[in-house]
Nucleic acid binder design. Structure first.
Lengths: 131, 131
DNA sequence: TAAATTACCTATTGACATAGTAGGTTAATA
DNA sequence: TATTAACCTACTATGTCAATAGGTAATTTA
């Protein structure tokens, strides 16, 4: 299940895309529009900044803005950044220790097939598709 | 992320399918073959019994067995029973309170599309496909 | 009938993640 | 210099996960 962090991050990115070209957007405005606690959003945008998806400017007139055009983001990269991984099972996480049962596992092919399908879905869904 | 309960349940069902027609299969045998704690499997098979997917017989010569043929189970129903829901977001859970933002939500269509795709995938994957 | 076997039951636990809240400091502008 | 807004560290309550522990009930076989 996608956590609130992933879902809220997506809504923040959509909000920023909807106000793209209007300069810096204060987090307070986003919090008000999206009806999400500003305090909690701080945690989320911090990760988005750290991940290089958006940039923030302090001080009066400051706020956040996208680093790229809305069609240059995918839902997949936003969700993956916030969730850590989108893998359906631990053994398919990037950097996971090789499972000793892998070659005899009857379920691994299904998980791989599913993982590929899901990955394709979210990484082909652009932020601009959500406006 | 699918929990161990869901993943182990799938492996128990596969194991039972692999020994279908051999009478009652003791949990100890399954635990040994699958290399999973028997104690923990008890919790899992209890839910599988309660959900009507398998039946258990006590006493010597007892054990568990499938209630139907392996091609009459889907991975989806097994996973859904164990996980409670497969919904990617809370607002798509069966019996969830209607979200007041639903009609203006820019992400809901994507979640619905994904939910349908995932549902189709797991519910068209038969237990017999995993042998 | 006693022993062995196996399912079935209730309760508990440690570790971790989730979804926030609280209260401050730094940076930039008017 | 006052205001605005990002940025930072820390804390917390709640819940879930992944088991473990220690029994009782049912059934078969010697």
């Amino acid at each position: 299940m996608i956590s609130t962090k992933g879902r809220y991050a997506l809504r923040v990115m959509i909000d920023l895309a909807q106000h793209d070209g209007e300069g810096n957007i204060p987090l307070k405005d986003i919090a008000d529009r999206q009806d999400i606690s500003k305090k909690y959003l701080e945690i989320i945008v911090k990760e988005l900044v750290k991940g290089g998806l958006i940039s923030g400017v302090s001080g009066k007139g400051g706020g956040y803005r996208l680093c790229r055009k809305p069609d240059e983001y995918t839902a997949g990269e936003i969700l993956e950044l916030m969730e850590g991984t989108l893998a359906p099972v631990a053994c398919l996480e990037k950097g996971a220790a090789a499972c000793p049962r892998a070659d005899q596992c009857r379920t691994l092919p299904m998980w791989k097939e599913y993982d590929t399908m899901m990955h394709d879905f979210f990484f082909s869904k652009k932020l601009s598709d959500l406006l």
